[in-house]
Design a protein around this nucleic acid. Structure first.
Lengths: 329, 329
DNA sequence: TTGAAAGCGCTAACAG
DNA sequence: CTGTTAGCGCTTTCAA
């Protein structure tokens, strides 16, 4: 390991000057050149642990997400990463697997490693940020609100639920079911509320409780829920999927039952990842996941830079891509 | 920030003893208890930067992948993460975006942060690991070989190409095209070789060059290639997709042309992520991505623990899920 | 088993 | 503009 002392000796300057060269404080051009050359020759890489220890900060931010295998979150991660690396920050991607304990572990690491800030899509309302917040580090919540007062970037979930449902109503469907995520996640609750609202407005909310299912935000849970709905005495002729993976699961089951959309209407809150379906078969309320990441990262960087505004909430709107195909019936 | 000195004072012991308690060296039960209690009360979190600086190592490994939005790699990441966190290591996920420069940046960070090791799916053969290897850190290559002699975990790519192609031959297809990844990535080259080999063995390799396309390993590149193939005077009646996303792109274009599989035969090397297609429509040679991650992580941990065997290569076999549907023609 | 003390590599006063 | 110097919080000899 070569250190600034080695570089300093070789360049004929003091260690402090080497440090200055690497940190952009004013140094004479000749010395800058000498230091650069020496560093090059010695293949010098500054020791970040030492820097972090000394400065009590590191140019790293943690991004905590509940499901690394969900393209919605990886797309968001791309947004975060692009902004962060542009600003010279690295991103540590932490997969909480929707478990509060794993979340807590990563948050501890963020503290122990002196990371500059955290962007978190909380596993649930139970997520506890007291300990990281008490260190004074900025935290930005994305996708889901927490029980703390924080900067927050979310989707217009209720609206998205309404839009998805209305597209199905417009296509002439009568019994429109809903499969959403866990009740204790606010995105899930809000999208469900949008569905209820749209059905009520259209006067189609008879049996509404029978047609609602809470699943996980994953493919398997949605599959089970869709099977249940199809087994109903009077099954739905359309379904709103509460997120992308629920849409995938629902469509899989429908296809297996010979009911490929638009035989049964499907509207998804979110984009179908890597879909091979005809774009006209399914309504998607596309959510700007990348943009959410970009926005959150910018807010976090502002906070890191010392911004002390009261907590802000940014709401991002989805864009409806209406299915144009109708039931062949 | 509370330190071991604060804890030591409160527990009535020396800082060294506090350190010992947290690192598992022998300390009397009473003192252990006192330290634990003091640490608890003070809400003490050990400062990792200091520890890293002192020990010249940190329980973090870097995982460098070319495309964080490809489920194949996120599935692999899950495997790595599960093994690593079990062993008390955190994983830093680095997205190189298939760019050698970004890769180099992350590798520098791995050095500067004293990370214990690196698992890398190299962007290309140009990937330069000299600098990280010269620090003595263990590196394990996954998915793709590098020009360095390293532990390596790869798929049986040629075989997978053969299996995919043979399934199409068995289904009665005659002109079987291939869309693969960039020529300079060995996985792409090997899968293409498997396709050529299977066609030659079946005596169907007339025009073979005309039927081969190099794309990126992404949806868009595959779409363009598929359009080209369909525009051929004598278009193919089947296509082998060199990876999952290429499969998605190819099927999208086919569907848009009214040629939803199995109208045109499709075999994919890899699994279709979140497919909504009937499972009988497309052959998939499913690659054990998670297992690849698990294996690589275990090898890396062994190296970190001091294992000095010569470099090993592990080859993982895909599992073919044959399409059962035939062309309706 | 425990404590005192040195030092990992860097940055930031402070002095010049 | 540049050098000297004192730690950041931890681990680890070395002695006791």
């Amino acid at each position: 390991m070569t250190t600034i002392y080695d570089v300093a000796r070789r360049a004929g300057v003091s260690p402090a000057t080497v440090s200055r060269v690497f940190n952009g404080t004013r140094v004479s051009p000749e010395k800058i050149e000498a230091v650069r050359a020496a560093a090059e020759e010695l293949n010098f890489t500054p020791n970040r642990a030492a820097r972090t220890l000394r400065t009590q900060t590191s140019e790293v931010i943690a991004l905590v997400i509940p499901d690394i295998e969900n393209p919605y979150f990886t797309e968001m991660a791309r947004g975060v990463e692009d902004v962060a690396s542009e600003a010279g920050y690295s991103v540590v991607l932490c997969n909480s697997d929707s478990q509060t304990e794993k979340e807590a572990t990563y948050l501890q690491i963020a503290i122990a490693e002196h990371m500059s800030g955290v962007i978190i899509a909380a596993a649930s309302k139970a997520t506890d940020l007291d300990s990281i917040l008490s260190t004074g580090r900025p935290v930005v919540a994305v996708d889901r609100a927490t029980r703390h007062e924080l900067d927050l970037v979310v989707m217009a979930n209720r609206e998205a639920g309404v839009a998805a449902t209305e597209s199905l109503i417009a296509a002439g469907h009568r019994r429109i079911a809903y499969i959403g995520g866990p009740e204790d996640i606010d995105t899930a609750a809000e999208r469900a509320a949008g569905w209820r609202e749209a059905l009520a407005a259209a006067g189609r909310d008879a049996d509404i409780d029978e047609l609602q299912r809470f699943a996980t935000f994953r493919v398997d849970g949605a599959r089970a829920a869709m099977e249940e709905l199809l087994a109903l005495p009077d099954p739905p002729d359309a379904v709103v999927a509460g997120n992308n993976l629920i849409g995938v699961g629902a469509i899989q089951v429908l296809t297996e039952h010979g009911l490929t959309p638009p035989a049964v209407g499907v509207a998804v809150v979110g984009s179908l990842p890597f879909t091979t379906l005809s774009p006209t078969a399914v309504t998607m309320v596309q959510l700007p996941a990348r943009h959410m990441g970009v926005t959150a990262a910018r807010m976090l960087l502002e906070r890191i830079a010392g911004d002390t505004h009261p907590a802000r909430t940014v709401v991002l709107r989805g864009e409806t891509r209406q299915a144009t195909a109708r039931r062949s019936a």
